[in-house]
Each structure stands twice: as C-alpha cells, then as structure tokens.
Design a binder for these strands. Structure first.
Length: 972
DNA sequence: GAGTTTGAAACT
DNA sequence: CAGTTTCAAACTC
C-alpha cells in the first residue's frame, strides 16, 4: 500500500480501471511539473473542504472536530478507495506512483491527491517532505465518511460526471487505492505532523473502507504522504480529490491526469482532472468523483444530494486533514457523518463539502485555471474545471459549488470570517479564460480562517473558491476551505500580485519561492492551522485579533473551549493552534468530549449552535436602507435572539447584531439602538445611519464588485473588511434581488451555519460563479450593487464573494431551475431544501444573466461554475429565493444542512425561524415589504435550492434560463 | 500587553 | 422567567 509501489502497478491498475494511462506520475514529466509546480499542494489546505461536512449541521461541526484529522484521514480513505483510485487514477496513478516512487525515494508518496493538493507539497514531498505521516489517529468516522462518500460518489460520480467529470476523472486517476491513499496521506502528512496523524486516520478511514489497503496506518509516512492524494485516489479517487481538498483534490487529480506534466501545476492538474474527467467518465473513481462529485454532485445533487454531500464531506475532511484548516472544523461533518450514516445519501450536505475542495483554493483554482484554461477548456471536465476553478472554464462548468461549506459553521463564524477575509478580492474569469485574479491579500488570512471568522472567510473564500472550483466545499472546515483556497489564491495573488489573470500562474506561485511559501504557509496555516499554523499566520491572526485570517482564535481560559463562550466551539469548529486558549478540549482529540458537551448544550438549547443570525427576508432596517427597495431590508438577516446592548448602542462589536452586520430587530432588547445596519424599529433608523448604510452599501457594492470579480477568483476578501462593516450593506441590499442575495448571504451564513444548508449552498453558489466573473465585470458592476448587498455581511461577503462572483457573472443563470428551486420553495422547506439545493445548486447555474448573479450570493460560484452557482443565481434572479425566508429557515437552513438537507435543517429551521426578529421583522418592517419580499424571494430561492440534481438543474437551467427571467418577473 | 468594558452565556 | 454570576471578546490605554 504504502509504497507507492511501483507506480507501474498502480498505473497498471489504474489503467485497468481507468484506462487512463497511468503514467507513472514520476515518470510523467507532467507529474513532476505538477508536483513541482503545483502550488496546489498547499492547497491541500483545501482540505478545508472538510468544513463541508460540517455544513450539514452546526452540531456536526462540533462533532466533527475530528474532522480535521478525519479529513486528513479521509484523504487517506479516499486513497483507500483504492478501487477507483488505482484504476481511475491510472494516469494519476502514474503520477501517484511517480509521486510515490518519488516519495519512495524520499519515502513519501505523493498521491495524485497530494499532487493535487499541493503541488507545493509535491515538491516538498518529493523531497521528502512531507509528509510526515501523521498518524494520528485516524478518524475513522470521518474517513469512513469520506470513503463512503467517495464510494457512493464514485458510484454516482459517473453520473455526475457530467459536469465535473474531469475532476472525477482526475480523481479516479489515483490509482491504487491503498497505495494511493497512503501516498495521499503522506503528502498531507508530510506537511504537518498533525497531518501525519491525520493521515493515519485517513488511512484508517480508508481502511475501513478498505482496511486492507490502508492498513490503517500506512506504514510510514509515506503513506501519509500519499495520504491525501493517493489514498484517496484509490478510493474513489474523487474522494481524494475532494477530500484532499477541493483544490488539492483537483490538483491532485490534475496531476494524475496529467501525466503530462504540466507542471502546470495545479492548473494542469486541474486540467488533467478535467481531461481525465472528460476522458474518464469514470465514476468509478469515487475519488475523482469527489471533485467531480462536487460538480457532479451538484448536478447530481438534485438527484442524490446525499452522495454528493458525502463525497464532499469526505473530501472536505480530507482537505481538512490536509490542511490544518480542518482542525477546526468541522466536526459538524463528523457529526453529520454520524448523523448521516456514512452512506452518502444522508449527507448530501457532504456534497457541499466537496465544494470545499473547490474552495480549497481559489488559488488553486486560479492555478488551475491557467492550466485549465489551456487544457481544461478542452477538457470536458467541465466540472472539474468548474470546480477547480470555475475559472478555468467557467462556462462549461457547472460549478459545483458546494460551498455551502460554510454552512457547517455557525453564522457567527461565518460572519466573522467575512470580515476577515474581506480584503481579498479575487476575480476569476472563469470563462474559459480561467483568469483568476485574486486581489486580496487577505486571502491567505482568510484561508486561515478560523472558526468563526475564519469560517466566514473561509466560507467566503471557500465559497468563492469553492464555487470557483467546484461546488463542493466543505464545510467542514470552513476555515480551511476558504482559507486554503483563499490562501492559495492569496498567495498567488500576493506573490504574483498579479491579480487577475495570474491565475494561470499558479505555477508561478508555486514556483516562486515566495509563493510557495505563501501557499505553503498559508495553506498550512489555513489548513493546518491548528497544527502547524504557520507562526506567521498565527501572528497575523493574532495581530488581527483574529484574524488575519479571519479566523478567530479563541482565548478561553476557564471554559476549556467547551462552552459557547468560546467562539471556536460556538462555531462548531475545533480550536486551532493559533488559539491561545488554555486547557482546550475543543480539539479533535477530544472529539467525544466535544460532542458530548455540545449535545448537552443543545439539549438545553437546541438552537445553541444554530446560526445566530437568520435571514429575514425583510428586515426592517434593511428596508430603511433599501435603496431598492424597501423590500430589502438591508439585512434580511437578523439576530435570532436579538441583542441586549445597553451601553454600546449597538455600535460596537459587543453587539452581536452589529458584529454580524445585521440590523437590530424587534427581538432585540437593546437600549438606545443605533445599529447602523438597522436600528430597532423602535428607534427607527436614523437618517444618518441610513446614509451611512447606504454609503456602506455603495462602497460595499463597489468593493463587492471588485470582490466579485476577485471572488470569482476566490475569496475575495477585500470586501470583507469593509464588508465587515459593509456587511451591513448586505442587509441593505439594494434591490430586491439584492435583498435576496443578501438574504442569501446572510442566510448563507446563517443558514450555512446553523441550518445550514443554505449557507453552504450559497457559498458554493458563490464560488462557482466566479469564473464567469471575468466576463462579469460588467456584471459585477451591475451586480455590484447587489453584490455589495450580498457582500455586506462579512459572512455574506464571504459567501457573498462567491455570490458576488455569481452575481457578477451574469452568466450564471440559474441554470437550474428556478423550477426546481421553486419547487422546494417553501421557506421552511427552503432551508432544508436549500441545504440540499445549495450544493446542487451550485452546480447549475450558469448563468448568463447578470441578474442571476444577484442571486448570487453564490454567484461567484456560479460564475465559475457557471451553472453551479446558479442556484443562487436562480435565487437571485428570482432573487428572492434566498431571502427566503427569513431567518428561520435560514437557521434551519443553515445547518447547512442544506444538503443534507432537511435533516439538519429541519430541526434547526424550525427553531431558527423563531428569531423574534423574523416575526417582528416580518411583521413589522420590512416587513411588509421585507418579509414579503423575503418570502417571495424565498420561494424563488427555494427553487434554487432544490436544484438537487445538478443534472436537473442544468436542465432547468437550460430550460429555465430563459424561463428564469420570466419566472423572476413573475415571482417578482 | 495589561487592564477595562461589555454583553452573552451560564447559573441560580 | 428574572436575577446574578461567569466568561471571554472587544475595546482602551
């Protein structure tokens, strides 16, 4: 196993299975390139994806703490999935093999994943890198999850192929399951010690699936090294990919595919992935599927969200593992996993997760794009490409956006994340160009994101990224994901500084030491944060207060990070190394404890982990702003419970409403409320405030626009900061559409987190769109306003970015299906649906319509994906979709569950809805308009979500794209 | 970095 | 449900 054995074998197997040529990775120059080139590896961070799993339900997040490890393990697992992996990856296998061989030489294996994960890594790994095996404990559950997923996915993948076939293919490439898995693991591990551990887990996971193969522990580091990529590959390679990181996965996949070399790095990898996908329709490759899955899932989601989810989860996990990122997150995933039995189905959410991969690294994406653009364009890989970077071929892509990943996180986190991340903007031009540009600097930071904030960022980024890449993000690690991707992107951007188009340069990034460093560090940080978390990042974060990354770090001293006082815990994320907490039990190692505590808390307050912010379709405040209309409540979002501020006048972060960039609602008991985002009705909004808000909105819009563009690229954090502030704006979303979008965002957050699903979707959606962004410029502008709205919230921003992207990219139309979306429509359902939808959605959009982007919160995703995000767009177009409902739904939705959907959501949703505000809001303010709008939106939104099956969505999209306008109008 | 303020979470 | 305490983030210096 471990040994990559002769790649030849693997390749052979691969060949058999995949038929794809397994050129020994080593052999293939391409492989080398990739390994060398790929900055991707860093992407591993992507693992972040893990978050997704989290997506399902916040609770899960907690549960998932392991996830991180798991995720890593998951990677392994994936690798395990030998079946696919080996076969599938034959091509990759080669790579893997090569990698392996290389690794062998070094001792480390690279799995395709690895390669995918991080080209960087590869290099390193090659050297030796890496990978330290982290044996850590395996988190089997996760792994299993992953595995299962992968499996399931694999199964589906084929189905799903469509969109993201490439990915899947690529994934599949990973040849030998066992070996691969090992390798993959290794890869990841190599980077971090923890990883090492994780890898083991992953391996275990894999083992579970294929204990044999894995052996659980791959002997040595090698395995670990291989872990990420390889093992996964085996598994359904897809799994790998996904697991590894969306980005990574993609990369890895790419690598595999490429035997070509292409150093091209990620992009190449991506291409390869795509190519393979195209070539290999394989589904078999479960792993590949991951990536694909995302896309596929997305598409398929509609069909079988669960699978998608699962895959995503696994992926995410993997990704998480890979990247430190995972650390935090996503326990939800675990939980979810648990929740949803391994089997894919339940976990549709997971599908979302897959998104995470994408999210993994916008950077990656970018990287990919270049390549992809080159190849991808050719490659059918649509999905992959989409996933990878929607950027690459946004057009074809259906993005998977699954990003909902964020979902797992709680709103809070999300929101926060937004802020943190804001800085960066990435613009991806998905459309064929594949240009990704990342502007933000913060990407990295974002990447790193921590739980809450990070999450936000992550989400955003992830969303964006993910959207870009693939649908699936992961929730799991909110942070990681986004962060990774972002980080990557950021790194890219930073390094390259080339904002946009640099995407191509992923390699460069890789190549450039600085870039590499950045990536690595970033990725690591983001991914590994807790593990390795590069000091720098930590520093940054710490300096920031959280955040550089956006990730927050807690500083708990007495609560062991097991109470809601802890931001990390509250966000359902594990504490990261960067956290300065004392006696922390919020770590994967204490997963059981965390889960227990979490349960206890939930028993007392079921909504304890639900997103605090719910989208209200109408928030009174928003209306105020509302340029557009009143309908908009600036923030459709509201704090569920409302704040109780007495001295801060809701003008400081002490105020949860303010912190979340949402207006206060009737539910608030604050005194002297001057919440910029929307004072309590009582207080009425001050004109001044309104002005401020509007200004913010405008700014945000502008920024968002940029962001969007960037976002499309990835994360775009840029907006974030402001966004943070701006976030407010979101609430204010200008137009209805805006509102809707916002609602998304907000909802996204909220949803994502708590309920979940939505958020996930949103993110996904967002990310996907990005690709188009390039095209979107115009759109951006147009949308910008909306975008801004979306952006406004931090979370939103994050998501929003994606969304923006989506929005931006006019392209996104909801391919999907308004209908579908609509179908789900009910707000309540919505949440659940959304959850599921989200993912799926992600996929479908392709919008062409600029409008759609509105929906977009997801837009970005859509953009990239094009279709993927569409759901969002759909929503947007409808706009209202999201709006959805209100908070409640959101909450419920949040759960991110979306995918999983109902399960998670439903519970939450019910409760969620509660938020006084909704009622109030609904009733009151904006109420009128707001709520109405919200509902209206919701309906629309719903439709978007519904988009379970990508395929369906796509269909719808195609059909509806035209219809959408009609619908929209009608809905309106 | 230390200390203060603030408001949520937890407890009674 | 209300009041109090505890806690950690946010903020200030």
């Amino acid at each position: 196993m471990d040994s990559p054995e002769p790649s030849s074998k693997i390749t052979a197997t691969i060949n058999n299975t995949l038929s794809s040529d397994p050129v020994p990775a080593q052999d293939s120059p391409v492989f080398n390139y990739i390994s060398n080139l790929s900055p991707i590896q860093p992407v591993k961070g992507a693992p972040i994806v893990q978050d997704f799993s989290g997506l399902n339900s916040p609770p899960l997040l907690l549960t998932s703490p392991r996830i991180n490890t798991h995720s890593r393990s998951s990677l392994l697992k994936r690798s395990q999935f030998p079946k696919l992996s080996t076969e599938v990856f034959s091509g990759r296998n080669e790579d893997y093999n090569n990698a392996i061989t290389d690794s062998d030489g070094t001792g480390v294996f690279f799995s395709p994943l690895r390669s995918g994960l991080s080209p960087f890594v590869q290099k390193v790994s090659d050297n030796n890198i890496s990978v330290h095996v982290q044996s850590g404990t395996p988190i089997r559950s996760v792994d299993e999850f992953l595995v299962d997923v992968s499996n399931s996915e694999s199964g589906n993948p084929s189905n799903s192929n469509n969109t993201s076939p490439k990915v899947a293919d690529s994934i599949p490439q990973s040849p030998n399951s066992a070996e691969d898995s090992k390798l993959s693991v290794i890869n990841i591990a190599s980077k971090d010690e923890r990883k090492d551990e994780i890898p083991e887990d992953a391996a275990r996971v894999v083992v579970e699936q294929a204990e044999e193969d894995n052996k659980g522990k791959f002997p040595s580091n090698q395995k670990y090294t291989g872990v990420y990529s390889t093992s996964d590959p085996d598994l359904p390679s897809p799994g790998f990919c996904t697991k590894i990181v969306p980005g990574l996965a993609a990369h890895s996949s790419l690598h595999y595919h490429y035997g070509d070399q292409q150093m091209a790095q990620l992009s190449t990898a991506g291409h390869t992935m795509l190519d393979e996908a195209s070539n290999i329709p394989i589904k078999s490759l479960g792993t590949a599927h991951d990536c694909r899955d995302d896309s596929v899932k997305i598409s398929t989601m509609s069909i079988a969200p669960d699978e998608g989810i699962v895959q995503h989860d696994s992926q995410t996990k993997a990704s998480q593992h890979q990247s430190g990122i995972s650390r935090r997150c996503l326990q939800f995933e675990d939980a979810q996993q648990k929740m949803a039995p391994a089997s894919s189905s339940s976990q549709n959410a997971s599908g979302i997760v897959s998104c995470s991969i994408q999210p993994v690294s916008p950077a990656v994406i970018e990287v990919v794009e270049p390549v992809s653009s080159n190849r991808s364009s050719t490659a059918s890989n649509k999905q992959l490409t989409q996933l990878v970077s929607s950027s690459v071929n946004s057009e074809s892509l259906n993005v998977k956006v699954s990003k909902p990943s964020g979902i797992g996180l709680h709103l809070n986190s999300i929101v926060n994340g937004m802020e943190a991340g804001s800085g960066v903007t990435v613009s991806v031009k998905s459309t064929q160009r594949g240009n990704l540009s990342i502007r933000g600097k913060k990407l990295a930071s974002m990447m790193s994101c921590h739980p809450s904030k990070n999450l936000k960022n992550c989400l955003i980024s992830s969303n964006v990224v993910g959207s870009n890449l693939t649908s699936g993000d992961n929730d799991g690690k909110h942070e990681s994901y986004g962060s990774d991707a972002e980080s990557v992107a950021a790194s890219l951007s930073l390094n390259n500084a080339k904002p946009l188009n640099d995407t191509v340069l992923l390699k460069p990034t890789e190549h450039t030491p600085s870039n590499k460093r950045k990536f690595n560090s970033e990725h690591i940080d983001s991914n590994m944060d807790y593990n390795q978390s590069s000091p720098q990042k930590k520093r940054q974060k710490t300096s920031d207060g959280n955040d550089g990354d956006g990730c927050k770090r807690c500083n708990c001293k007495k609560t062991k990070c097991l109470k809601l006082y802890c931001d990390c815990f509250a966000a359902g994320v594990y504490c990261v190394d960067s956290c300065t907490c004392q006696g922390c039990f919020n770590r994967p190692e204490y997963e059981d404890t965390v889960l227990d505590v979490r349960q206890q808390i939930q028993s007392r307050n079921p909504l304890a982990f639900a997103p605090k912010i719910v989208q209200h379709s109408t928030s009174s405040p928003a209306n105020i702003l509302g340029e557009g209309g009143a309908s908009f409540t600036p923030s459709s979002a509201r704090h569920k419970r409302g704040c109780n501020c007495k001295k801060s006048m809701c003008l400081k972060k002490y105020c949860e409403c303010y912190q979340a960039n949402v207006g206060c609602s009737s539910g608030c008991r604050c005194e002297g409320c001057k919440n910029v985002f929307g004072p309590k009705e009582e207080y009425g909004i001050d004109l001044v405030n309104k002005h401020c808000i509007t200004e913010r909105l405008e700014r945000s819009v502008e920024e968002e626009v940029e962001m969007v563009t960037a976002t499309s690229g990835l994360l775009q954090s840029g907006p974030i900061n402001q966004c943070n502030s701006t976030p407010l704006t979101p609430s204010f979303r200008r137009s209805n559409s805006v509102d809707a979008s916002k609602s998304w965002f907000t909802s996204g957050r909220y949803l994502s987190s708590p309920d979940s699903g939505q958020a996930n979707t949103a993110p996904y959606g967002l990310s996907p769109g990005s690709p188009r962004n390039s095209n979107n410029h115009d759109i951006h502008q147009e949308t910008t306003g909306d975008m801004l709205d979306l952006v406004t919230f931090d979370h939103e921003l994050n998501y929003g970015n994606a969304k923006l992207a989506n929005e931006i990219s006019p392209g996104f139309h909801v391919t999907g299906n308004m209908d579908d979306i609509l179908a789900p429509p009910k707000s309540q359902d919505w949440a659940s649906n959304s959850g599921g939808q989200l993912i799926p959605q992600t996929v479908h959009f392709q919008s062409t319509d600029p409008l759609s982007w509105h929906n977009s919160p997801m837009t970005h995703m859509t953009q990239f994906d094009g279709s993927g995000m569409n759901t969002l767009e759909l929503l947007d177009s409808d706009k209202k979709p999201y709006v959805m409902e209100d908070d409640t739904p959101a909450i419920l939705k949040d759960s991110s569950i979306p995918q999983i959907g109902v399960k998670v959501n439903s519970p939450n949703k019910k409760r969620v809805s509660p938020p006084y505000r909704h009622l109030n809001e609904i009733g009151s303010s904006s109420s009128g308009g707001g709520l109405k709008t919200g509902r209206k939106f919701i309906l629309r939104a719903v439709p978007s979500f519904p988009p379970l099956s990508p395929c369906i969505q796509s269909k719808y999209v195609a059909a509806h794209s035209t219809n959408n306008s009609e619908k929209d109008s009608s809905s309106k």
